[in-house]
Amino acid sequence: MASSTVQPADQTRQPEREAARRLLESSAKLSYDPATEVDWDTPLDEDFHGMSPEWSTLYGTRYWQELTEAQRKELTRQESACVASTGIWFEMILQQMVLRDMYAKDPTDPRFQWALTEIADECRHSIMFGRGAAKLGAPAYRPGRFVRELGRAFKTLAVGEAAYASILVAEEVLDVMQRDWMRDERVVPFVRTINNIHVVEESRHMKFAREETRARLRGAGRLRRRAQALVVSIASYFIVTSMVSREVYEKAGLDVERALAEAKANEHYKSMMRSSCAGLMEFLASAGLLTRPAVAVYRRAHLI
């Protein structure tokens, strides 16, 4: 009798188990060691950008037109380092949420094994981003204290679809940016390698996050979906608005207040962010996580 009650629940997770098994196979075939794949030894070549210039927060503004080419390159190097540092901050949140979710679960389950594989990937990525930021000559950029404390609460309290959908948001936004940067010959070669590694390995993480988000929402009622949609949108807002800090402009030798004002009004950058999130918003809509209040938050963050 006991086995008959367990079996249906076991069957409902079978598609996620199969997906996790495929991800484990993919990881075994195609993964990288940044310690050996990235050229850490060659000195930084300041003739290169740190990211595709079109992704700079000041690209297309009057201030950008006034900058020398050397200043533009230094700015993009600092912005790239800051994005990497924000990535480290969220990857640490991600690791804790996934580890907490898998605590005391079946270690023979491919989902459990994939979750630990993902955490191992993220540990390597965080070290890689940290070394990359240091090589770009950047200080230790961090989100503001208020956002850091919100992150501390979120990693402790977020569960289920809120955790996995938020993970997906952070990964999707970075993915689109980095696909551009890794192909751009104007970008310093070691950063292109870092971006390529991250894009390849994060594609598996995004698949897992989508599968888990869908699975956690099975049978969820309207009230739960609306509440979780708002939580995800608020988390997304703070992730995206923390990607480039004011210290970037100071480190690049710019007029900080002017740079902040022009970045805030930069329609080109807002358009780039919206286009990068088109696929993400389509997924959130299909999952019932694109409610009217959530859309309002995404609009405020220029993600829709």
Rank of each mutant, 00 (worst) to 15 (best):
E201W: 10
T68K: 11
M1C: 14
H198I: 12
V297H: 02
L67S: 03
W181D: 10
G253E: 14
L290A: 12
F238W: 10
W40Y: 08
L223K: 15
Y249A: 03
C277G: 07
R225T: 15
A259N: 06
W40H: 02
E172H: 09
V159I: 08
K135Q: 12
F90R: 05
M51D: 04
D106L: 14
S203Y: 12
Q14G: 09
L217W: 12
T5E: 15
A133I: 09
A294L: 07
P34C: 15
R13D: 13
D255E: 06
S271Y: 03
D45Q: 04
I127N: 09
T76E: 06
E25L: 15
M128V: 14
L168C: 01
L58N: 01
F146I: 06
N266I: 01
Y141H: 00
R210N: 04
R258C: 03
E46C: 05
G221Q: 05
E257C: 09
V295W: 08
T61S: 04
R246C: 05
S166M: 03
R210H: 01
V83Y: 02
V231K: 03
L23S: 06
G130W: 12
L289M: 13
I197V: 09
L67H: 02
W89K: 06
I119H: 08
D101H: 14
L94T: 03
E74V: 09
I119V: 13
Q228A: 00
V6T: 10
V244R: 00
Y141S: 03
E122K: 11
T241R: 15
K29I: 08
Q96E: 15
Q14A: 13
D10P: 03
R224Q: 13
I194R: 02
R72D: 10
I234R: 10
V232I: 09
H268E: 12
I194W: 05
A235S: 10
D45V: 01
R192S: 04
M182V: 09
P43W: 12
E122N: 06
Y32F: 13
R62P: 00
T156D: 13
A138G: 05
E37S: 07
T86E: 14
R21D: 14
S126Q: 14
V199S: 07
F190R: 09
D106N: 10
M177C: 13
V173S: 02
K207F: 04
V297I: 07
M206Y: 02
R62V: 08
L223G: 04
A134C: 11
Q7G: 04
L230N: 13
A120R: 05
A19G: 10
C277K: 00
A153P: 04
E66N: 11
A20P: 01
G60N: 10
Q7L: 06
Y63V: 14
M182E: 11
V188C: 09
D101A: 15
R145W: 10
R142Y: 12
T36G: 14
G144C: 12
R300H: 05
A70H: 12
P110Y: 11
G160T: 01
M102K: 02
I194A: 09
I88A: 15
V147C: 15
I239Q: 00
P107Q: 04
P110G: 02
